[in-house]
């Protein structure tokens, strides 16, 4: 891109516009933070003065204490690490595999029509139904959870990318073919770059899917991880533990989404679309 750097001198009106925008952004952010603080404060207050039973709803201070406790007995990072690893690995595998399979399906119309009903059925199937089977096949360790995470994300990734690949602009295809492009060239010069936006939205969807897969997996089988802490906390009625794990989960789920959003900025930077 040709960056034309003018010596910028804006009109009065534009300056007023900029000021108004800054004000707007400021208001939005203060309200966001304000609401959060208000909720936390109200939560803490209502358990402190006895409007609500801290045993049933926990409280912010108890959550902080629980997290500190987990940190002190050295299990905090172990649980976080376990879940993060399962989620990230499951995410990566389902994205890469899904992209690859979608390419394969794009490449051959015959393979595509043969496999279509299988994909439809696998997509409709609630993956949690496979839980017992997965335990039998993969045991009760991380492998089972990883497998669960992958199958939850895989079909979504395949369908998402395949839709993008087959909806490649017909005229651009025609143009490339008229230049004598072979299928590899069509793939690399047109199909892959033109589906970039879909790829990114697939990543965003699949971050969510990976968390669903790993936490669901941990509900069913695990001995460690945030999902395990949540289930365990529920079973032994330790609401503090349950809430603490949920809060940590929120944080990391948001973080991972944020990372994908950063990746999006990086990838889209050079493609004025």
């Amino acid at each position: 891109m040709k960056h034309k750097r003018y010596e910028i001198s804006y009109s009065e009106e534009h300056l007023r516009f900029l000021k108004k925008r800054r004000l707007h952004v400021g208001v939005v952010w203060s309200l966001r933070v304000g609401i959060l603080l208000l909720l936390i404060g109200f939560w803490e207050l209502s358990t402190a003065v006895g409007w609500a039973d801290a045993f049933l709803v926990s409280s912010p201070s108890r959550i902080v204490k629980t997290i500190a406790g987990l940190y002190q007995d050295g299990t905090l990072f172990y649980h976080i690490g376990t879940t993060l690893w399962e989620t990230a690995a499951g995410f990566a595998i389902s994205v890469v595999l899904g992209y690859g399979i979608a390419l394969l399906l794009w490449w051959s119309e015959t393979v595509r029509s043969v496999l279509e009903p299988y994909i439809v059925v696998l997509n409709a199937l609630p993956k949690i139904a496979l839980g017992p089977l997965i335990i039998i096949w993969f045991g009760t360790g991380s492998k089972a959870i990883l497998f669960m995470t992958v199958i939850v994300g895989l079909i979504v990734a395949i369908m998402h990318m395949l839709t993008a690949f087959v909806s490649t602009d017909k005229n651009k295809l025609l143009l490339l073919r008229s230049m004598g492009a072979n299928k590899w060239q069509i793939l690399s010069k047109l199909v892959v770059p033109s589906s970039l936006a879909s790829f990114i939205s697939m990543l965003k969807v699949n971050v969510g899917m990976a968390w669903i897969g790993s936490i669901m997996g941990e509900y069913i089988v695990s001995r460690a991880g945030l999902g395990y802490l949540i289930v365990y906390g529920g079973q032994v009625f330790k609401l503090d533990l349950l809430m603490a794990a949920t809060v940590i989960l929120c944080f990391f789920a948001a973080l991972m989404y944020f990372l994908v959003a950063m990746l999006e900025k990086l990838l889209v930077k050079n493609t004025e679309n």
Partner: peptide, 19 residues
């Protein structure tokens, strides 16, 4: 049908790239 993710130069060179 210029490819939006390519610069004009890269677009113009596309047929040569293909060949």
């Amino acid at each position: 049908e210029l490819f939006p993710w390519r610069t004009i130069e890269k677009n113009i060179l596309l047929p040569l790239e293909i060949k």
